[in-house]
């Protein structure tokens, strides 16, 4: 993979540590996430993957007892000190593991974020809604019932609705936390195709339990274990040529 040295990384993580009370979830993690890459994070439960995502858009503000040390810079700006937190979050889309269809109509679910940033014209909203739903591989299934409640869709559909909603933010960075947990394999493949195309427009951090999913999608992959980043490399290099014994064991299915 070629990177232009002139382009600064989108996300710079420096000595990041995360604690819940006395318990460390992540300690001393440092790396860059480049523009327009899909950055995979794999690792067993309790490796600190989700905590890492939470720290990026400062979801720790919601979690009592969660402390973040070190530094995360988004587009060159330390996220801990941004003066308009909401502006930061608007530029980062998040998809949680369990689908969260808001109790609004399908249309309003996707139109919410554009409306928040001031889009009023119906035609423009229609266009955004169709585009985002199409990209999330949901449009064909719901185009005839856009006014029914998003929270009444099936689990897999709600997850795709969540993805469409994240895309409607037109984010620079998309954080996916095990998005395929509630989605069937066929739909998962369709969403994966979409993610590959999205790489042209934005940067994606993909946390996944499916090792092969990281291999299919990610440009580079990091292996997290017990709150540390054990190894980070171009995906193919990591999978075929891991240097750490723990990584080899995990990829070989010997634990986790």
């Amino acid at each position: 993979m070629v990177t232009d040295p002139v382009i600064p990384p989108l996300l710079e993580v420096r000595d990041l540590s995360i604690h819940y009370g006395d318990k460390a979830a992540l300690s001393g993690v440092s790396f860059d996430i480049r523009q327009h890459e899909i950055f995979g994070i794999i690792g067993p439960a309790n490796a600190g993957k989700t905590s890492f995502l939470r720290a990026i858009n400062r979801m720790d503000d919601f979690v009592p007892g969660m402390r973040v040390g070190g530094q995360i810079c988004f587009a060159g700006r330390d996220v801990a000190t941004v003066r308009n937190l909401y502006a930061l979050r608007r530029r980062i889309g998040v998809v949680f593991p369990l689908p969260v269809g808001l109790p609004l109509s399908i249309y309003d679910n996707v139109a919410l974020s554009p409306r928040l940033r001031g889009v009023r014209r119906r035609a423009e909203l229609d266009q955004i809604v169709e585009r985002c739903l199409t990209r999330a591989a949901l449009w064909d299934e719901v185009k005839d019932r856009l006014t029914s409640l998003g929270s009444l869709l099936s689990g897999g559909q709600q997850q795709r609705l969540t993805i469409a909603r994240a895309l409607s933010q037109e984010p620079d960075l998309l954080l996916l936390d095990e998005f395929s947990i509630a989605v069937d394999p066929v739909t998962t493949m369709r969403i994966e195709e979409v993610l590959k195309e999205l790489r042209n427009e934005l940067t994606i951090v993909l946390v996944t339990n499916l090792v092969q999913q990281a291999r299919r999608l990610a440009d580079r992959t990091a292996f997290f274990l017990g709150g540390r980043c054990v190894e980070l490399d171009a995906t193919e290099a990591l999978f075929s040529n891991a240097t750490q014994q723990q990584t080899i064991d995990y990829l070989g299915g010997r634990f986790g």
Partner: peptide, 15 residues
């Protein structure tokens, strides 16, 4: 949108 000058990027988060 993504790769514009970093100064402008950073500023938008403070506006």
């Amino acid at each position: 949108g993504v790769t514009g000058p970093r100064a402008a990027e950073a500023k938008s988060l403070d506006r």
